[in-house]
Simulated scan of single mutants.
Amino acid sequence: MFTKAFRVKSNTVIKGSDRRKLKVDVSTAFPLLSESELSEVVPNKEEINVVKVYAHKGDAITLYVLHKNPLFFELEKRLYPTVYMLWQYPNVLPSFATWAPVIQKIAGGADLMLPGVVVPSCGLPEVRQGECCVVKVVGNEAPMAVGIAAMSTAEMSSAGMKGRGVSMDALLLQCFLHALKSKVKKSELPLLTSSFLRNHMFPCCPNGKQLDIKKSSYKKLSKFLQTMQQQHRVVRVKELTKGVESLVEVDWKNPVKGTVLQPGEVRAIITEYVKANELVDENNKNYVHINPILCDCLLEKSEYHEVSILKWDDLFSRTLSKMQECSQFVIAGQQPIMKKGHIEPIDITVASRGSNKKVGVHQCLTVNSHLL
């Protein structure tokens, strides 16, 4: 949120009544703070500045600054601690530990993937979905990031520690694409965007998860749909009635919703991803380091905390095995036909008749591909 430039709207000294309210809000939001600690972060007499800023995505944020250090920030009427405050009081919130390379990805805006969470011998802390928590590096008690739990501790365990622990954008996109592919019919268009969300996207949300657009980076359905329209051209949205938007067109063939790739193309994509994320082992170029995303996609549950690198060939074979197989039927004079699922090889048997004439079965040619 603060990795890019933000704009300061105002900077004022807090008033007495607002100071008392802030103290109550901090005490309510962080009950583990003792009375003495509460008086330290919200002192009675020392100057506290209230700074209102706009983040690079337009979010309106209120910062509470003491001794030139931001201690809390308020977003959508919810109070969060900053890492500066948590360095002084690291045990105020439940924490999850991960590895240093993962923190670098989080700093760039990535989600914390559950395979990247290091589970201590005492188990994970008890958190509820939507609860504020912190992320630390293994061996360092200083919190490095603040986030919202996307699922409860019980849900993390039942999910086999696979998936995303913090954030919402990926779930939003998943429900959106699933709804377009399996729920929306052409005869329903134009379709009110509010009806699309309520009757199509919400039913596509996986069990145990809750779709909440306000917790995504888009904040509003209209902004998300605008992105899908302008950047990916998956849908076209139009205001048919003043103030009311509708889906008027869907591109069901858009590659964002799935595309057929030959094995060579898959290898090229994986190679590009590995190099772009600098995952090639510096000491042995034949090996690739497994980051949280590759861990989530390719490793078995028993391998999460044991496998950290893979050979290139193993990386490619695991990727292909995780993709849906499909086959293309090519018949002379007709358009190719694409079918999902595995198909058994076609045998051509050559036999000799009494006239010594060779005969055989010639039906079609199959080309194995994979669906991403």
Rank of each mutant, 00 (worst) to 15 (best):
L180T: 00
A154Q: 08
L192H: 08
K183M: 14
L189C: 09
R164A: 04
E188Q: 14
L192N: 09
A149M: 01
K209M: 15
L191Q: 12
F202H: 15
H200F: 15
V146A: 00
M168P: 00
I213C: 02
G160S: 10
L171T: 02
A170N: 12
M161D: 10
A145L: 08
S152V: 07
S152H: 03
H178M: 10
L211R: 08
E188C: 12
S195I: 06
L180P: 05
S152W: 01
L197H: 10
L211W: 11
H200G: 00
F176G: 08
K215Y: 13
L171F: 05
H178W: 05
K209S: 14
F176V: 04
L177S: 07
S167P: 04
S187C: 09
Q210R: 14
F202T: 14
T193W: 14
P203E: 13
H178I: 11
L189I: 08
T193Q: 08
T193L: 14
C204P: 04
C204V: 08
S195F: 02
K209Q: 15
V166W: 00
L189D: 13
F202I: 15
L197P: 00
S182V: 11
C205F: 11
Y218D: 11
M168F: 04
S158K: 12
L177W: 03
L191D: 11
P143Q: 06
G165N: 01
L171W: 01
C175E: 14
S158A: 10
Q210Y: 15
M201F: 05
V166P: 02
A142R: 05
K215P: 09
H200V: 03
Q174L: 01
V166T: 05
M168C: 04
K183T: 11
E141I: 01
I148G: 07
A154I: 05
C205W: 13
L180R: 12
A142N: 07
L191Y: 13
